[in-house]
Design a protein around this nucleic acid. Sequence first.
DNA 1: TACTCGATCGGA
DNA 2: CCGATCGAGTAA
Length: 196
Amino acid sequence: MVEAKTLQARNTVALARWLLGKHLVRRFPDGRIEARRIVETEAYDGERDLACHARVGRTARTDVMYAAGGVWYVYLCYGVHEMLNLVVGPRDWPAAVLIRGIEGAGGPGRVTRALAITRALNRAPACDDSAGLWLEDRGGTLPRSAVVASPRVGVDYAGPVWAAKRWRFTLRPGADRAAPGGRRRERSTRVAGRAG
DNA sequence: TACTCGATCGGA
DNA sequence: CCGATCGAGTAA
């Protein structure tokens, strides 16, 4: 399980990167449990971020983003796909991390379809199993080289400055396992530090 | 109340 | 490239 406190740091971009390799665990209505590693994320950080839903301030829809980190934000996109986000940051700082990919399902719409995630999970807790969808840190530190940063997808409406931010993080396939002969000492991702 | 436009995907 | 499909946000 992941500590809610960890998700309440005001460092959205670092958290998006940190979430790579963590496990998204789903308990389906029939009781079956499935865990999948997160392989792609995107950071959305505050009202200033013109790509973030909270750019319009606090509304019925964005209210959940102002909660303290550790709950889910699920919304319907294009009237077709449910999008799964993890709310992060301290209370009143509207930020979230979009779960764009898990092992075996790339693309945010496919993530939710694969795990039967709907808006019924909006505002549900992500750090305990009470809602049937939670995060687990099963260990295994990623070398920094396993992570690729790139611009966020589909946010041209945010204007050139915000659309260009490399706040999308992808886990390079295969690059997360320990190097053979294992003497390579690489800096691992850190949650603390400067974002932007 | 009318209109516009999506943090996408699958099929021409 | 295009259509699906619907709710949030905005203007009126």
